[in-house]
């Protein structure tokens, strides 16, 4: 029987949640025994290659590309899990949500006290994904099946969540594993 396939991605995140996956330490070998990785930073595939059982989403959506990737995951994964506070609540990137995008870019590239930008130019190359007016949590963009908060979620919580999904067992994280910091 084919192993379950897992795809992972970091959208508007810092890869900290992926670091927490790596923090499974020696259990990462056990994980590699029981699942196959599809698109993920582990193999650097640019697109999902075939139907996946589980997609782990780190980060919310701050730009157009994030939305495209998130929709690709939703189309190709049976179960989608928001991994970490940025995916579940917006997180640090959403700090800009209380000001307009224009004001945010002006502060970052023109008006900020430590900015040196003599041309007063805000990056606008066509290669740069277009920023959204607001940063959205993943479930504000597509349907998300499970949420695993934390900054980052503890490795133990990730381990238990993956096991619970693969074995179709209910999971209560409980004290110390359900956390937002």
């Amino acid at each position: 029987m084919a192993k379950p396939r897992i795809a992972t991605t970091s959208l508007a995140g810092c890869f900290g949640c992926h670091m927490s996956i790596l923090d499974l330490d020696e259990r990462i070998l056990e994980l590699a025994e029981i699942v196959d990785f599809d698109r993920s930073p582990i193999d650097d595939l640019k697109h999902i290659s075939q139907r996946c059982d589980v997609g782990l989403i780190e980060g919310g959506c701050c730009n157009e590309e994030n939305v495209h990737v998130l929709r690709e995951f939703r189309r190709n994964c049976d179960v989608l899990v928001s991994l970490g506070d940025c995916a579940t609540m917006g997180g640090i990137p959403a700090l800009r949500n209380t000001v307009s995008l224009d004001a945010c870019l002006r502060e970052a590239y023109i008006d900020g006290p430590t900015v040196h930008n003599p041309l007063r130019r805000i990056p606008d190359d066509a290669e740069i994904p277009l920023l959204l007016e607001k940063v959205y949590s993943a479930h504000e963009v597509v349907r998300i099946d499970y949420h695993l908060p934390g900054c980052p979620p503890p490795p133990e919580a990730i381990w238990r969540a993956i096991h619970a999904i693969l074995t179709k067992a209910p999971l209560t994280l409980g004290h110390g594993l359900l956390k937002y910091d």
Binding site: S82, T88, H139, H147, L178, K179, Y180
Partner: peptide, 8 residues
């Protein structure tokens, strides 16, 4: 929120 099991 933790005690009530709120994840999002």
């Amino acid at each position: 929120a933790y005690r009530l099991g709120i994840t999002a």
